[in-house]
Design a protein around this nucleic acid. Structure first.
Lengths: 196, 196
DNA sequence: ATACGATGTCATCACTGTTGACAAACCGGT
DNA sequence: ACCGGTTTGTCAACAGTGATGACATCGTAT
């Protein structure tokens, strides 16, 4: 977590400082959450005055939203074959932590989740669910209540994500990837298949 | 949300003030979460000096833990017949909000979830999962991976609870109780039945 | 060269959780 | 009834927070 080198005189570029703040905030928020990170810490890691953080982003909350609003990268697996989507989805979610982009998405989602007493954060989470689950699924699901089932699948994946990364359930942490994907994937498959 | 009447002279009873602080904290934390409630607000609602809050509970975090650590009241339904446990569990969870104790449990759990960047809060959540799901279920589930399946059921119920009360998914909010219980209950039933 | 807008710095505000020093009330022993 | 000690309550203060506004400095267009 490098601190921006601060020469004797300051170079001036709005875009550069904005980006420096953005990157520092992304790292710190993902590591420690919204409340544990102060704007002075963000400013220090960006090599910038604390007042600039507010000037460029309006408030700490808006900075948080702008920096943590990422999509859950599941679009690829959502287009796969329906009959094995449950297990594929769980495997994909389990593998998120092994890529850099996936880890960022997971930590961002955890941070968003924990900050969700704020209405704008709730709204952001709902939009993520809509884009990642409802949009790709409602057209594909056969049978009734497609929209409800898509959102229930989102709830179920959300439960897995929070158990793994928010609560950090040790039983889930110890379980091997195959059993986890088979068990939880079968449960999700129930919602995909519908059979009403 | 009544404020404790403060007479001209104060009567002295450690137990009474402790309880007043406890009740004020429970109400405020459940309403607004950990970070949004200050100890001065708690103290004011309890009719007490802010320093006493720290004196009696050590810190705001310990007060939060002591006050919000409630069990999810699902023991009764956990003893019901296994073959319809999935749906019964969902129905029970959906009905929580209609009882005073259930509402308190749900709001407390939400507050715990959102405060779960703190290690002691994580630990509390894990204990709640253990008592509410793992203990009653592992002995009853037939087939392999009983412990893993019990914790996955906990994850799934957690997903429903957070979608309903933390993210406040409007699709789930609009859905009628019967379809919700049927759909999500069937998915949980997959984990209960096992069939490996 | 001067003026202006963009960028950076600083002091300050009200608020937070927490602490320690002090005051007031109660209770037991003489 | 008085005293001493313990319990209970009060207050001021500290370092830290997010946020604001006044001021300084830079780059550049005229």
């Amino acid at each position: 977590m490098a601190v921006r080198p601060q020469g004797p005189a300051r170079r001036r570029s709005a875009a550069a400082t904005r980006q420096a703040i953005s990157e520092a905030a992304r790292d710190l928020f993902a590591d420690s959450g919204f409340d544990a990170v102060g704007i002075r810490a963000i400013a220090a890691h960006a090599g910038v005055d604390a007042a600039l953080v507010i000037r460029y982003f309006g408030s700490k909350e808006r900075l948080f939203l702008e920096v943590m609003a990422v999509d859950l990268p599941v679009a690829a697996v959502m287009d796969g074959p329906l009959e094995s989507l449950g297990q594929a989805l769980v495997e994909h979610v389990l593998d998120l932590s092994s890529s850099r982009a996936g880890t960022l998405a997971v930590t961002s989602l955890s941070a968003l989740f924990r900050a969700s007493e704020r209405a704008p954060v709730q709204q952001t989470l709902r939009e993520i669910i809509e884009r990642a689950f409802a949009v790709p699924l409602v057209g594909r699901l056969r049978g009734g209540d497609a929209e409800l089932r898509a959102h229930l699948i989102a709830a179920q994946i959300g439960g897995l994500l929070t158990s793994l990364h928010v609560v950090q359930d040790p039983v889930l942490g110890r379980a091997d990837r195959a059993s986890l994907a088979a068990r939880y994937g079968a449960a999700i498959q129930c919602l995909i298949d519908g059979e009403d």
